[in-house]
Amino acid sequence: MAGAAIATSPNATFAERQFVWADEPAVLRRTRAGRSLSRVRYHNAEQFFAGIEEGIIGEGPNLLYHTGIVLQLGLSAHLIDVGFDDRWCARHVGLHIDRSLALADATGLGLNAPEIERLARFLSPYGKWRQADIGSQPAWPWSRAELRPLTRTLLDQVRSVTGHARPARGEAAS
């Protein structure tokens, strides 16, 4: 597949403008190694999500942090699958789920889920939830019961677009 740079133009969308850096444009190149890494990321997302689904991860900031991990792993699985370089994503997207989601949608994820977009903005960068004091953070408008289907929707869309199989329970990522 030929490389394709994301570039700005007078009619560029927000996502296109947001993800162009003058010094290092993103060039999409699909590779076998990228496909393999994408599958590992997707499987890791599913494994982290299992802890949320099974109630192992408690409420509060810890739940938000783990939800952020799952969303970012799932989105990075898509980004790597379509040809983004993992190091480029680490430098330019980092822990910002909102950036990952916008870039993924701009490259064919097709999620079109305003509530997930809202969640991505709220969680970003998701590292802020790791040691967060619940009293210092704004209240979030999602319960555990609401976060699970939002997260599942994103993972199912990534699986649908990438074609990765859902891992069997207990299967380690390889």
Rank of each mutant, 00 (worst) to 15 (best):
W142N: 06
L64S: 05
A15G: 08
H78Y: 02
D156E: 14
V70I: 07
R121G: 11
L28R: 10
E59Q: 09
A77T: 03
A113Q: 12
Y65N: 11
T31C: 06
A15C: 07
F49R: 01
A33T: 13
G110K: 04
E46V: 15
W129P: 02
A26G: 09
R130E: 10
V70D: 04
G135F: 12
G83F: 01
E46K: 14
I6C: 10
T13H: 07
E24T: 11
Q47Y: 09
G127E: 13
T67W: 00
V93S: 02
C89F: 13
I116F: 04
I116K: 03
A173H: 12
T162L: 03
S124F: 02
Q18N: 12
A104E: 04
G170M: 04
H43S: 10
P141G: 14
M1T: 14
L154Q: 02
A113P: 00
R29A: 12
S174D: 11
Q72M: 08
R118Q: 11
D85F: 03
R87T: 14
A77D: 04
R159L: 02
P25R: 01
D133L: 12
R35K: 15
V20I: 08
G135R: 15
R121C: 08
G3H: 11
A15E: 11
A12E: 11
T151E: 01
N112R: 15
F122C: 10
